[in-house]
Design a protein around this nucleic acid. Sequence first.
RNA 1: GCUGCUAUAGCUCAGUGGUAGAGCACUUCCUUGGUAAGGAAGAGGUCCUGGGUUCGAGUCCCAGUAGCAGCUCCA
Length: 649
Amino acid sequence: MSSTQSLIRLTLPDGSVREYPSGTTGQQVAESIGRGLAKAAVGIELDGEVRSLQLPIDASADMKILVRDTKEGLEVLRHSAAHVLADAVKRIRPKAKLWKGPPVDDPRYGFYYDIDFGDEPITADDLPQLEELMREIIKSDVPFEREELPRDEARKLMVEHGEEYKVATIDKIAAEDTISFFRSGSFVDLCRGPHVTSTGKIGDGVAVLALAGAYFGDDAGNKMLTRIYGHAFPDKKSMEEHRHNLEEAQKRDHRRLGVDLDLFSTMGDLGAGLVLWHPKGGFVRHKMEEYWRNAHLAGGYDIVYSPHIAKADLWQTSGHLDFYKDSMYSGIDIDGAEYRLKPMNCPFHVQIFKSKRRSYRELPFRWAELGTVYRYENAGSLHGLLRVRGFTQDDAHLFLREDQVEAEIERCLKFVISMLQAFGFHEYEMMLSTKPEKSVGDDAGWEKATKALEAALKSTELPYGIDEGGGAFYGPKIDVKIKDSLGRTWQCSTIQCDFNLPERFDMSYIDPDGNRVRPVMVHRALLGSLERFFGVFVEHHGGAFPVWIAPTQAVLLSVGDRHAETVRKFAGELSGRGLRVEADDTSDKIGQKIRHHLWTEKVPMIAVVGDKEVEAGTVTVRSRADGDLGTMSVAEFGDLLAKMTTERS
RNA sequence: GCUGCUAUAGCUCAGUGGUAGAGCACUUCCUUGGUAAGGAAGAGGUCCUGGGUUCGAGUCCCAGUAGCAGCUCCA
């Protein structure tokens, strides 16, 4: 360390400046400020760089002490927990070879460690033992000691330990970078850090959660290693809350609710990734589509339809066979020509455009279709309704003159937001993706289109991010992510400019001077895939659909058998008004009926009919969301349901 | 596609190489009641499919199919 005892000046976040001898460690600084702080500290930020507490500081800098419950502090905590997990693993499998163990930003897991177990694999049954070992290591409170080694010594150390992946990592570390290790007791791991000062600082909020495969180097061409997922929180209580949240998410899983509420199924003999819509799920989807169609017709769109298959030539011209052949189903021979199932709707809409000569006076065209497409997805990526092989896009294509682009995109984005709000999503994350390295179309076109997208984003006055180089090869795009009731985000909506297809299909319209001019093409989907959106919608509402879209809006319950006739009569009156109301005239007890309809079947409203109600021609209403709504006439109850239906609540 | 795990009643799941089980749901009966489970009886099975080992396979082995967790991919 520095032999000169010069002083360094550290500026803390509150603006105060403290002087220390050069070489003072972050830990010592924290202790000098306060014992409580020193205890909570897990790392420091020095001029914006996160570092370990045990490192000496040898220059003046802005310094922030990271405590365990900040974002940066948690990363250090979780990184250290990963290190302890590796230590635990080596105790039960000394021959295991370590690859990497970073903290991760995932709602379910805090960190993982990728390990090659060779011919001594572990199973899920070993996870509790690993968690127990981690707790022991944490309890023994062994110091984390950081040391730097010259390259050849570092290499030798890892070769001695049989850590071939670590040796490979060392060989990849740039010459000017230092090679550091962290020791805790007898365990040593090549690691950049930062780590907490001792294992005890990790605390008792740790868990070992799951086991999975992961490619070495995250490359599908490489060998598959075993990934162990864990989590670490500042305290035990947070960990318990996390487990509780995982359970809550499980209860809302659309695959679970799909079975429980009899909405849809994907299993059976029809083939993986294909969906059967049962009557109730079909009804909800029907209501979604009905709203969608009406909104499009009101919003200046025309509705078009296209077939499920087309000649391979069309997909050759569009470029799909060149770019996405692996994801397209193989050809079908029809009268000696090859046909393909459609993976997208756009070429058909282009064909509609090309079916006659188009004038500048006709533009813009806004053509929308609920078009069912088929894509071959890897078997392992299929997931309920969220990732399937046959799905319906709420697709539309705009064909525009250049002077219409900006206004149309703004109109589009506003439409996206109103549609998402109609389905109960009110929080968004929007992202503008710009020109990637490989692209078609000239720079001027890209710039104009990107500006038009950005102007539309600005007009919404909502925040958005920019993904530089994240656009498709054929044009820039806006993606909208929605946030659900559990705070998870889902990408559904997209607005994409396309410079490729108009070119490939040689599209044109006639301008005022009689010249042929290329139209601008915009693809957009509001809900994305209906299957996927339905899945997200189910999870967002936990299966408890709002009145306007619920398959059954209300059930009338008879208290005793003598009310059966009246309850059927009342339900008939309400059904006659176009409301989806059923009667439960069975002789179950009222408590059981309420439990069944309101809680198990998640019907939004129930109404009880007993002696009093028969006498007065009323019903006593209870809402799933708002509880007891009191007694009202049958007509009033009908008005309430009708009002909720039109207001989409 | 890859790694690992799983497949028994409508659902959730027990099941030790030797006669197929439970809870909930369902049907019927009793109960006639007032806002989150009244009682009794009954019915319900291609133990995923196909091979193999064995006197004998739901159970062990192999393959396929489907699902789960993750990785890779996602126009």
